[in-house]
């Protein structure tokens, strides 16, 4: 049975967020799973509403990871490690079904109601990090975990979450023709790691952007995700090589 998650409509989310951002961190009343805002909605049918206990479990799980990475004054902040750990945690979370987790209003609930304190620690007052969308603090992590999951039988299942940079993930997840196709997204992420070993991290932003642009254009005429894994990896590696060459030739 699908677990139905709370949905926070956009207008209500923006109003609540406005109030949160106008207040100091100490003024936030905290998250109380048994007392959700009036504007919260659930799907009418098709599953079971998530219990307050399960909501508390999500809150506790993420909070633990955040504190381990410096949230709440617990040492130096390590945002990149938090992102990697939280992405894997969310992807493994039994309360998040794909259908529910693809809804922006669900992630608005995460950002505005359940975790505004962690979003403020991670990104400050940037509204798009609280509201649902590909830049929502938690939605983007769940999407990147889904896109770069190597599979449960692989030893380093979530290694790409650790290895890729924020810019690399943006190039994959914020391009629907790539981010929405896990075959292509995973292949590009793996190729990015190989390209880093070859060209170094310093050049990767421009190389990645050019390579992804060309791959997107090619994918319009050619079904890249239909290729076998080796052919797809070779093709993408070749585009990274070409992008690196263009990069070195640029004035």
């Amino acid at each position: 049975m699908t677990i139905l998650l709370p949905r926070l409509p956009t207008v209500a989310a923006e109003q609540m967020l406005g109030e949160f951002l106008r207040s100091s961190p100490a003024e936030w009343s905290g998250f109380v799973a048994t007392r959700l805002p009036d504007s919260i909605r659930f799907a009418a049918v098709g599953g079971t509403m998530i219990s307050p206990t399960s909501l508390e479990a999500i809150r506790s799980g993420i909070l633990l990871l955040a504190r381990d990475c410096g949230f709440d004054g617990a040492g130096k902040s390590d945002h990149a490690r938090f992102d990697a750990d939280a992405a894997a945690w969310l992807a493994d979370c039994p309360f998040l079904s794909p259908g529910e987790a693809l809804r922006e209003d669900v992630w608005s609930f995460f950002g505005v109601v359940m975790f505004p304190d962690i979003v403020r620690w991670r990104f400050g007052n940037a509204k798009e990090r609280y509201l649902g969308g590909v830049r929502n603090t938690f939605q983007r992590l769940w999407l990147r975990a889904c896109a770069t999951d190597r599979g449960s039988i692989v030893d380093d299942r979530w290694g790409l979450l650790r290895d890729l940079t924020e810019d690399a993930f943006v190039q994959i997840i914020e391009r629907p023709s790539i981010g929405g196709n896990r075959i292509l997204a995973l292949a590009i992420a793996e190729a990015w790691v190989r390209a880093v070993a070859k060209f170094g991290r310093g050049q990767m932003e421009s190389i990645m952007r050019l390579a992804v642009l060309r791959i997107r254009i090619l994918n319009e005429a050619r079904s890249l995700s239909s290729l076998d894994a080796k052919a797809l990896a070779d093709l993408i590696d070749n585009h990274f090589n070409l992008a690196a060459t263009s990069n070195t030739q640029a004035p």
Binding site: P98, L102, E104, P176, S177, G180, N181, R182, I183, S225
Partner: peptide, 11 residues
């Protein structure tokens, strides 16, 4: 695929 938008968000 599925998800709101003009292109699917997930395969």
């Amino acid at each position: 695929g599925t998800g709101a938008g003009r292109l699917p968000q997930q395969l």
